[in-house]
């Protein structure tokens, strides 16, 4: 039996600022995890990544990250690494957590 596909998003860092960014529906990048467009199949995921990678002039290091969907279909990061990336470090109140 094929393993269930884990939903994915595309994330990267902004070339100039270094901030964590997420690829959105409109082919632009957002600082907010909720804005990320979700890939429901492996094909969609690869297609998204390819599209995102065309924007090398404004991003660095795009990759796919696993997410899980709650009942409202909102995506949250699955791996604790991605949770940190979406918030900021745990030793200081710095990074994204200051903005939400």
């Amino acid at each position: 039996m094929a393993r269930k596909f884990i939903e994915k998003i595309v994330t990267a860092n902004a070339l100039l600022q270094g901030d964590v960014i997420y690829f959105t529906k409109q082919n632009v990048w957002s600082r907010n995890h909720q804005d990320a467009i979700i890939a429901h199949t492996i094909e969609q995921a690869n297609e998204l990544l390819e599209k995102a990678e065309q924007q090398q002039d404004i991003i660095v290091g795009a990759y796919l990250a696993d997410v899980f969907l709650d009942e409202a279909k909102t995506a949250s990061p699955l791996h604790f690494r991605e949770i940190f990336r979406s918030k900021g470090p745990s030793n200081y109140f710095h990074g994204k957590q200051t903005k939400t």
Partner: peptide, 11 residues
């Protein structure tokens, strides 16, 4: 070579 890395949240 000029010491600039990309980390989790920033350079």
């Amino acid at each position: 070579m000029n010491g600039l890395y990309l980390q989790l949240h920033a350079y």
